[in-house]
Write a protein that binds this DNA or RNA. Sequence first.
DNA 1: ATGGCAGTAAAATACTGA
Length: 283
Amino acid sequence: MMKIATWNVNSIRSRLEQVVQWLQENSVDVLCLQETKVVDADFPRSLFEQLGYHLYISGQKSYNGVAIISRSPLADVSTGFAPVLGDNNIGELDEQKRVITGVLDGIRIVNLYVPNGAAVDSEKYYYKLRWLKVLRDYLQTLLQQPAEVALNPKASSAAVQSAIQNPKSLCVCGDFNIALEDRDIHDPAAFKGRIMASEAERQALRLVLELGLADAFRKFTAEGGHYSWWDYRTGAFRGNRGWRIDHHYLTPDLYERAISCKIDSAPRKLPKPSDHTPVIVEF
DNA sequence: ATGGCAGTAAAATACTGA
């Protein structure tokens, strides 16, 4: 039994009370945060540590920033693309803190904050597309790496053979800033071809998923009208004018094991909320 | 087409987000 949540909190310091409260009311094993907007030295660790959680963080001043908050310690934690792909293959893409990963109970959890892209054809849009291409290489490399058991000198040769031959279990979650299908947008016609819905972004994400990853939410829910982000402006939440852009993508073994995937819209109703709300997958 | 709203850094607005 394991629950993994993802939540873009739009500043952990502004949302600290809400996040701690939510953790106390929702017994998740792992909470992946995005847009923490704080350097590591200033991350508000203590309330989480008092609750018994372990923290793994990668932040920067003002923008971006990711963190994994886990009830149990994680193995093999790394941040950014470089530890997996090497320094020569990623250009400047690790300057923005958007990637953190670790292993829990044989599941590699990858927590992502995909670039927003500003507007189609902008400089930031091409940064987003380039980032998604590198993400594919990154995940492909993780999938090809032998599992931790294969690196353990005490593991039996049978276990090592099995670990090498069997695909790894990956839960790739976070704020993707892409609605892959029209049913993920409240008014797809109005946003056709626009940022977060454009064909090039969707195709870049599809290429990532072709590595063998499937959307946990769509295992259980086919209809539209379910969203994870609502614009602060123009009363978008009240009118449920939202987008589903926060996802859990799972390798086949985990997809089979998943027993629920739910969006918890309660935190979006609070005063001073994040514009995103948590999504939780359960195995 | 633009702005609406919110957070950060910094001290008023500019930048970013989605």
